[in-house]
Each structure stands twice: as structure tokens, then as C-alpha cells.
Computed example of a mutant assay.
Amino acid sequence: MSPTESGHLRRARLRHFLRARREQITPEEVGLVNVERRRTPGLRREEVAALAGVGVSWYTWLEQGRDINVSEGIVNAVSNALRLEECERKYFYRLAGLNPPQRTEGHRCDSPDARMHALVEGWAPNPAYITDRYGRIEVASRSARALFRIDARGDNCVVKFFTEPSTREKYPDANEVGRGLVAQFRAQSARFPEDPEFGRIAERLCECSPHFAALWDCHEVVGPNQGMRKIAHPQAGVMVFDRLVMRVPENPESLLTLYIAQPGTGSAERPRELVGSHSGVG
């Protein structure tokens, strides 16, 4: 993809993102009196401009995705007006062609090193795996392969979730899981604006999964999502895990996901049995 094409794509994403966020905020939320009936939901462009302290024409050009210079101060002002979360702000920074303020993530390596492999396998009997920038499995422990029915390398977590009904059925809270996967995938795509593979994956999924297409149109973004994860297993029942996600230090493009079985659940009662059985990845 040429720099010109990359710029067009980035500005198109910026246009959709700002409009989606603007339409999700009510006038009452930002202290405006809603005295008239509105034809469209959310705030108007002139209201966002006033809240951010910028000109209406300038904000309109920004939301239209025009090729204009955007400063860090403007991004922060608009972020405040739209009440963006930290991850959404970073996404906005990247779409505006700026580097978000953050600590240096280190140098990229071609693949997770031997220590990460050892950590993943040594996490047994609890599952662990490492994914690349697209959500594809790079390394997976034996327990993760058995529980999630994934290959040691190559399966894409996002694609698997939205194209295999048997994968979605494993999650009692499948709607929440799917929403998080899409929002994280979109945030990842902004970190690599010149990589066309994100667009190809999204296009294929939009064609074959109306569920993915609807979530993709929401333009939600989150960082590596963690917290509790419930997984239904035919022998152990509903297993409950605490889930920790972090970037691999030597290769910040990759994400390490660790599961810890909560006491008193099916997962905690019979974790070792699951390793020997075959029961997507979330």
C-alpha cells in the first residue's frame, strides 16, 4: 500500500470513528439543554466544536477526513469533548497521523523467544497462548490447544470466533466476547496503518458474518481486554477463569494471554483432566 493510499484509509477510518463517537453522546451528558427534536442521534458537529474550543468549519473538515494538519492539543481537546477513554484517545492519535504519548515499547523481534515459549508451556494446567498482531496463534500450551481446539500455530482467534458456531457456543457471554474481539482488532489495526492485512481480514469477515459487520460498523476500540472469562465445557460445566493479557516485552506486536482458574468452578476442580480432552479462543 502506497503512502497516499494509506493516508486515504487512515482518514476514512477517522471520519467514521469521530462520527460514531459523536452520535453516541447525548446533549444532556455534556450539559447542553436539549430543547428541540433532533433528526439524528447524539451531538451536532457545531456542538462538538464548541466543547472542544475549535472552529466549526475546522472540526467539520476533521470529521470529513480532509487532509489537514492536526496538533496534539487539538486531539486532546476533541477527545475531551467526545469523552474518549484512554485507548480511544490513542486510536484517535494514530488516525490523526500522530504518535500517542506513551512509553517506548522496545524493539520488535521476529517471534517470541524461548523464555516466552517456556512460560506458556509452564503455565499448565491452566491455558496460555501468544498471538500476533492479527490475532493469529504463535504459541499455545497443550492445555490451551485442548480446551480451545486450536492449532499450535496459525489459527486466527477473531476469524475462528465469527466463522465457527461451535466456538461461539462455548461462551455463555458470547456477545460480550465478540464485541471485545472486534474492538481490540480495530485498535490493533490503527497501530499498523500501512498494513493492508487488517483490511483484508475485516472485509472477509464482513462478507461472511453479519454479526462481525455490525460490530465493525460501531467503530469501538479497546486495548488488550482482560478480566473474567466463562467457558462452557461438556464434562466440567461452566468454567470460570481470570484472564490476563499483556504485550510480549521483546516483541510488542504480540500478546501473551494467561488464564487462571477461579476456585470452586469446574475449571478449578478438573483442570488436569481437560488437558487430555478436546473440548475458539477469546
Results as ranks from 00 to 15, higher is better:
residue 70 V to W: 12
residue 16 H to V: 07
residue 39 R to F: 08
residue 65 G to E: 05
residue 88 E to R: 05
residue 86 E to M: 09
residue 14 L to R: 15
residue 76 N to Q: 15
residue 61 W to V: 00
residue 71 S to I: 09
residue 79 S to T: 06
residue 33 V to H: 06
residue 82 L to V: 01
residue 7 G to N: 15
residue 70 V to K: 08
residue 74 I to Q: 05
residue 80 N to L: 12
residue 81 A to L: 08
residue 7 G to T: 08
residue 9 L to V: 13
residue 81 A to Q: 08
residue 26 T to C: 02
residue 19 R to F: 07
residue 29 E to H: 06
residue 32 L to N: 03
residue 68 I to P: 04
residue 2 S to L: 08
residue 75 V to A: 11
residue 8 H to L: 14
residue 25 I to R: 07
residue 50 A to C: 05
residue 87 C to T: 14
residue 58 W to V: 07
residue 30 V to H: 08
residue 83 R to C: 08
residue 7 G to E: 15
residue 27 P to T: 03
residue 8 H to G: 02
residue 15 R to G: 02
residue 84 L to C: 12
residue 19 R to N: 10
residue 47 E to D: 06
residue 90 K to F: 10
residue 63 E to N: 11
residue 25 I to N: 04
residue 63 E to A: 07
residue 60 T to S: 14
residue 43 L to C: 05
residue 91 Y to D: 05
residue 28 E to M: 05
residue 35 V to Q: 10
residue 31 G to L: 13
residue 48 V to E: 01
residue 66 R to K: 15
residue 69 N to K: 12
residue 80 N to R: 15
residue 42 G to S: 08
residue 40 T to I: 07
residue 52 A to K: 09
residue 36 E to D: 05
residue 62 L to F: 15
residue 3 P to Q: 06
residue 30 V to C: 03
residue 55 G to T: 02
residue 75 V to E: 11
residue 81 A to Y: 04
residue 33 V to W: 01
residue 37 R to D: 05
residue 81 A to M: 07
residue 44 R to P: 02
residue 79 S to A: 15
residue 32 L to K: 01
residue 43 L to W: 06
residue 13 R to L: 09
residue 68 I to C: 07
residue 47 E to N: 02
residue 76 N to R: 15
residue 79 S to Q: 09
residue 73 G to R: 14
residue 73 G to D: 14
residue 62 L to W: 04
residue 23 E to C: 07
residue 38 R to T: 11
residue 69 N to E: 13
residue 28 E to A: 15
residue 9 L to H: 06
residue 10 R to D: 04
residue 53 G to N: 08
residue 55 G to W: 00
